[in-house]
Nucleic acid binder design. Sequence first.
DNA 1: CAATCCAGTCACGAACGCGTCACACGACGC
DNA 2: GCGTCGTGTGACGCGTTCGTGACTGGATTG
Lengths: 224, 224
Amino acid sequence: MDVINIFLTGELGESLDDFVHDQHRFTFDHLGPDGPRRLVEGPMWAFVDWVMDDLAGLEMCRRLRADLRTADAHVTMVLEEDDPEDRRRALRAGADDYVIGPLTRTAVLDRVLALQSRGAERHATRRFEAGALSIDMAALQARWNGEPIMLRPNEFRLLRFFAENPNRVLTREDLISGLGKREPPIDERTVDVWIGRLRRAIKAAGGGNPLRTVRSIGYVFDLN
Amino acid sequence: MDVINIFLTGELGESLDDFVHDQHRFTFDHLGPDGPRRLVEGPMWAFVDWVMDDLAGLEMCRRLRADLRTADAHVTMVLEEDDPEDRRRALRAGADDYVIGPLTRTAVLDRVLALQSRGAERHATRRFEAGALSIDMAALQARWNGEPIMLRPNEFRLLRFFAENPNRVLTREDLISGLGKREPPIDERTVDVWIGRLRRAIKAAGGGNPLRTVRSIGYVFDLN
DNA sequence: CAATCCAGTCACGAACGCGTCACACGACGC
DNA sequence: GCGTCGTGTGACGCGTTCGTGACTGGATTG
């Protein structure tokens, strides 16, 4: 049976017991500042309260996107009222959509089931394979012909982003914002160093060089 | 500042003035049957009304994909109601996604900003094909019968410009300004060297010579 | 046929863009 | 507190790219 992980920042007011419906088992958990407590294999849905006063909601949203374990979660912002400006900021912070609170358990389930059945395959596949390269998103491990590639967090994110956008020239700006590093602003030339380190790590695992430089534009992950 | 072109087929009911937000400048324009009126360098987003009775929406969608100038636009279909069959046809016609209308300006901006900020991977392959020649705008790679043509940046831009203006004599001045090299002023004879280098690169990939010289005028990209 | 015009090509210098290194700073663990 | 690790930045050097002038050969015109 498929498991769907649901995380909430705020209190739901109702019980957070696991719940079975249709083909799916829903597990509920509280989402603290350190990310999710437990993590079961399966799609993740996060409902983040807005909490306007200290912008904790937006911060949480960015943190989810930056954290490799939750980067592919579907993030729904829970707004207190329907303010267009808030919606925009929520989406810019990385949220996938929003609802107007307060949240009830049925509202959560309705939303998840609705998007789920609409085939909203927003979240990336947890596993990626292309030729000799394989990336296990859950284990945070990349391999070349089965040989582990020793990657530091940033390099893994970079490789992941390339794998999600194959055969497409990515500018340095694309890569910076793609890794969620708009703040503080990063020198574009730093991307060159990322690329160099990633290439070296792949090479050290006996791999080739799937990253092609496109002069004066950026880089491409060549997939055939 | 980055410019984002937004085109709409229907009326928005609100003003279509240019709009500045964050790092981007949004320019709005009406999208007629002959394609966009004006075209600024930058990403393009088209919102196409469904208009069920004469299938004009689908036709517009296909036309956008076929037109090289708009082939890489992000096309959003505006449905009147959430009909799964319509959604499927929209996506098959080349749309990237869909919304349920009616459209408001804030809805448009929300959608663009959301996808923009997440580095929305484009599903549509930006691609141009003419006989043996194919140009992948996303990977910035040209091929002749599948054989990669090794092009330097300027040569690729040149080929791209020719492909965007086939069967039309382009003066050297057209080419210079078409590649955005007005400053500093460039000697027109330099274009001859560009042409030579481009021809040689195509030939090296086993290709023919699609570039015909029009004496004392310029050059044509012959397409059939 | 001669004079002229025009396009193709080559070699060269200068500017540009990229890869890489060492270093500094902060985070983290022992 | 100290050592280690991860990461961003400035600087340096090398290879690539590109505009230009000169030369050549073919086309055009009278």
